[in-house]
Every structure is written in structure tokens, then in C-alpha cells.
Computed example of a mutant assay.
Amino acid sequence: MTHLLKPVGLGPVESDVYLHLLSHAHAGVPGIAEALGITAPRVRTALSRLTSAGLANRLIGRPARYVAAPPEVALDSLVLHHHQVLDDLRAQARELSLRAKVAAGTQPGDLIEVLDGADAVLHTLTRLELGARHEVCIIDAPPYLSPGTLNTNELQALARGVTYRGIYHAPTLAAPGALRLLDRYLAVGEQARSLPDIRMKMLIADGELAVIPISFTGDDAATRLLVRPSPVLDALKLAFEALWNRATPVGRAAPAERPAPAGDAAAEDTAGGGRHPLSPRDLAILRLLASGAKDRSIARALDVTERTVERRVAEIVRLLDASTRFQAGVQAAARGWL
């Protein structure tokens, strides 16, 4: 707790003084200095900063005594103020960036930049995602720098209101733990779709910058291209939209629940209602099946036998009153099960 106030720009001395005030009402400078083992001038400076920040108040009278402002009110207000300052800083940074671009001009050779090395790639991807203002479009496909890792940049951007649309290479969703990661993103607002086979790996931020592999058929994850506004970027955006329109939506996993008994009205699905009698495992099988994954991949992803997958798929097809797997996928989507 020593550095409690560090996130809002105050130091350890201010944190110590504030914590002391919370437990010692009407404290004066000499008493605080003695209790904390620091000099009176340092205490006065800390109290001045705390008062300016709205975290402490000086009482009327002599000698001067102080009380702490309620933390649930004062800290929330201070954090909100710092968020506003950061938003203003982002706006100024964007304006300065635009001025720099106008001043420097854009040469044909500047339209595409080679990012060489994992650090350079990760730094650029982080900068684009955390700096996004409106939308990030992703095609998730091999090769990967760090497979199976939670993308905290996306979580932060989604929390700021940035829209995320992701198209997934279906076989990657069958990798162990892949659906759990995807559910984390879906739970906080990502829109996700999948295609059986897609290799056009890319990330486009606000339609202004894109990162793509140096080759769509290679396996070099540590060398990529940064594409600036140009006909190449326009082509990438058109390609993404065309693929998005062809892709199959990937639904979010429902809360864990046991399958309800047959005939239970509370569990029966209604058109578009999304209620279903599937167990969590059967729902995971259905999602992977709809994404185009094969039985062997589904079995490996869920750590079950291929025979179990075949048996459960047959049961899902029966529940949907379908005659083929394709028809089952159509029925599941129509009923809101996906």
C-alpha cells in the first residue's frame, strides 16, 4: 500500500501521509512527521499536494490540522480527471502526428515499411491497438509469435469502446485453449467469425494502418509489413470486408449448465431465442463444427476421443431434427444456438 497513489501521479510520501490521515483524524504536521519519521517540510509539501488533488482538507483554526477526504469519492474523481488528461494527451498526439505527416510529406517508398524482428512487430501491433480510436479488424491465422497468449491490448481497447472484428482460421480454433481465449474476447464485445481456410493474416487499425506478414504462404512470424494509406491498404480493407461477409459467426459459450431433461419447456429453444438443451461440451462441439473443424481436430481440442465426437455430433443432429451436419449448422444458427 506504500505507493497507493502512484497511478494518479503522487509519490510514496503523499501515499503514506494520506494513509495516516485515514486512520488519524484531525492530524497535524508535527504528529504526522513524528509518526512517519520524515521532516515537517516534507509533510507540508505532501499535504499541499494532497489538498490540491482533493484527497485532504485543512480544518479551520490553529494549529493547522487535516482530515482525509473519503477515498471512495476522492479517488474516483481523481482517476476520472487523469483519464480526461490522458484523453486530451492522445488527441494532442494525434494532431501533432498529422502535422508531422503534412510537414514531411509522403514519398512512394514510405507507403510500406518492413518490421524486422519480434520486438519490432510486437511494439507496432501494441501501438496500433492501444492507439485505435474506432475499429480494429483482424484476420487471425498462422504464423504466430506467441500462440495461446491473451491479447491484453485488445481487452484495453474494447474497454475504451473500440470495435473489434475478427475472422479466424477455423483449424486454429480447434487448438487446445483457443475457444477459452476467444470467449474472453467475445464476452467483452469482440465480433468474431470463421472460415474453413484463410491465410490472409492481417490487422487494420481505424482503416489507416495495417500490418501483414511478408508472405501469406510463409511461416516467418517475426518479419511483417506496415502498410500506410495507399491503394495497397485500400485493397486489404476490401479483402477483409469480402471475407467478413462470407465468414460464419462464432457464438459465445453459454454459462456452464447441465442438459435439461427432454420435454422440459424451460430448456426448449425458441426461434432466435438462443435457449438450448446442450451441455457445455456439446455446445463447444457445435461451435467447432460450425467453424469448419473436422472430428479429429475437435477431439484434440476438447481432449475426448474421435468416437465421442462422432456420437455427440449425431445426437446434436438429432436434437436439431436435421438430416446432415450442414443442415444442423443452419438450424443451430437459425435458432440462436450459436
Rank of each mutant, 00 (worst) to 15 (best):
H276Q: 14
D87Q: 07
A91V: 08
V8M: 05
G61F: 03
P41H: 09
P213K: 06
H82M: 14
D110S: 11
F216Q: 15
P280R: 02
T305V: 04
N57G: 09
R180K: 15
L4R: 03
A290S: 04
L47Q: 00
D197G: 12
L179P: 01
Q156V: 11
P71E: 05
A74H: 04
A221K: 01
L243S: 08
V313I: 07
K237Q: 14
A322D: 03
T39R: 10
I38D: 03
E315P: 10
I298L: 09
A175K: 10
A141T: 04
N57F: 09
L78A: 00
T2F: 10
D87V: 08
I204H: 05
Q92T: 10
V250N: 04
A175P: 00
A267Y: 01
D87E: 06
L179W: 01
L150P: 08
L111P: 00
D140E: 12
G28W: 03
I139P: 01
G207L: 04
G166E: 13
P229G: 04
A141P: 00
L5Y: 01
R193F: 02
L98C: 14
E306F: 07
K294E: 11
A170T: 02
L78H: 01
L338H: 00
L288P: 01
T217D: 12
T51Q: 04
Q156P: 08
A46K: 03
F240T: 05
R49H: 05
H26Y: 14
V330L: 05
A118E: 09
T106K: 10
D87Y: 03
A178G: 13
R224E: 03
D220H: 10
L238F: 14
Q84R: 15
E129V: 11
G218V: 05
L86G: 12
D88R: 14
G189I: 00
P63W: 07
D303Q: 12
S297K: 11
L19C: 04
A265Q: 13
L122S: 11
T39N: 08
H169L: 10
I316L: 08
P176F: 04
L55Y: 00
Y18C: 08
K237F: 09
